[in-house]
Write a protein that binds this DNA or RNA. Structure first.
Lengths: 198, 198
DNA sequence: ACCTGAACACCGTTCAAGT
DNA sequence: ACCTGAACACCGTTCAAGT
């Protein structure tokens, strides 16, 4: 029911991102086609180049959208937490949930890329890091190593689980436990005193 | 100095795998081109299809080679270990080292794929699992959760660290510590009694 | 049985030309 | 300023034809 498109699309950049989000979710990062995207938006294959440098630039823009959603999810987890230990635990669940619910976006967020190395999705890691610092201070997490080291270990555990799980690695072992239970088992070894409700 | 190739290559399958290993290491999985591979081996672009169903089949074959090397590395780690706790610790170092030394192969080994879900690189996970069982029995690892759960958590920690590190995530934090030190910090929380030499 | 040559559909990217 | 049309180099894959 869209009206006949005028020669100038008007909000092509927006339209490319909206349709791009869908295309990425449908096809995954590897099969994400710029030509297909242009076709869906009803524009020539050259048109997107007026708004993005190349294919990678669009994917990066979609990754940026992912960082925003991801970061919001982590902040919600912290906001809902009863105390610093609970905050770390809830971030764990949120991390896994994000990876399962947005597998393609999750993949591009942490992919390696020339001039844009896979990062921790800052400022998300910063949010997590602060939660770890507080949890250490409250005695929930060991302080044998500095906070950045502990944060890195827990982050790696969550990231590894997210990658393997979203890729089907865990289901291979016949484990279909809910994310909450998985998160509890994954982080179990890090607690040095019981969490509230743990 | 290669002699003029006869019409029948003779060992094309082998040659494709050898050159494929190189091409994969040079370009990474995404830019791995079947045409380029055929060109390097000095054969028409259609020739590889006599030996592999498609591009994915060659990459899968290269992943299989990766599994073999990976598995050998884990077994060497176990063989060199002083006891079950040390075996788990050494597997950790071997895991990280493999990811750093063979980043492209590591990526395709654990990639998601239709009909070939990313797995733990069995039988490598089995080797690791057995080491965890023994380490639990010897009291090095907690037995609050069953061995498969503990093994999964440690595996996730190593996998996450390997992915983030080989993608440049860790260097972002300015941490250039050697792999051995990184492995020690990553696995620190899992030990419930000191390892030999820990 | 194994490989070539040529073709097809698709892709990312560029650029002169249109509005 | 923004978009089209047509082109280029490249890709994966297929298939009749060659040895």
């Amino acid at each position: 029911m869209a009206a006949q498109q005028p020669y100038h699309h008007g909000s092509l950049r927006e339209a490319l991102l909206v349709a791009g989000r869908e295309l990425l979710a449908e096809r995954g990062p590897d099969a994400f086609s710029l030509s297909e995207l242009a076709r869906r938006v009803g524009v020539s294959t050259a048109a997107p180049y007026r708004h993005f440098a190349d294919r990678d630039a669009i994917i990066d823009a979609l990754a940026d959208e992912g960082y925003v959603i991801f970061h919001a999810a982590l902040r919600e987890a912290v906001a809902a937490a009863a105390d610093p230990g609970d905050a770390v635990a809830r971030i764990g669940v949120a991390y896994l949930r994000f990876a399962v619910e947005h597998p393609a976006v999750f993949q591009i967020m942490f992919r390696d890329r020339e001039g844009r190395p896979a990062e921790y999705g800052p400022p998300s890691f910063q949010t997590f890091f602060e939660a770890v610092v507080l949890a250490q201070q409250e005695g929930y997490l060991a302080d044998r190593y500095p906070a950045h080291s502990v944060a890195r270990s827990i982050w790696a555990t969550l990231h590894g689980a997210a990658v393997l799980d979203s890729a089907g690695g865990f289901s291979k072992l016949g484990i279909g436990a809910p994310l909450e239970q998985l998160a509890v088992e994954l982080l179990d070894s890090y607690w040095v005193r019981p969490r509230p409700g743990g």
